[in-house]
């Protein structure tokens, strides 16, 4: 099994997804199966191969430096689960 319970917990923590104790084994098994399956890529020798850099050959788009002076605070706060005045609000963070 590629992904043991500790690994599952570690990546779940990195991904900020709570996994309940009764789910750990299941997740570990499913994730291991998928990882086992994608291992078939090891059949391909890629020593001399560069990773793909551009999907389609098109020039990149850039933007200029002119600021848009519109105040979007209404728009961005509109859907916020918790806000006070013009701030987003979250549980207290201790540094």
């Amino acid at each position: 099994m590629k992904i043991d319970k500790n690994t599952t917990l570690k990546i779940a923590r990195l991904a900020r997804i709570k996994i309940n104790n009764n789910e750990i084994a299941d997740y570990s098994k499913q994730l291991s199966n998928i990882i086992d399956w994608v291992q078939q890529l090891n059949e391909v020798n890629t020593d001399q191969i560069e990773p793909l850099k551009k999907i389609v050959e098109i020039p990149a788009t850039f933007k200029g430096d002119e600021p848009e002076l519109k105040d979007y605070s209404q728009d961005i706060l509109e859907n916020a689960p918790e806000k006070i005045e013009n701030y987003f609000v979250v549980p207290k963070v201790v540094e």
Binding site: R16, K18, N79, P81, P91
Partner: peptide
Amino acid sequence: GVKYGFRSKINDSLDAMYE
């Protein structure tokens, strides 16, 4: 759960809320 969408009622810490 900060800017939009569903947010759990867990308020113990920011990380607990996220998870």
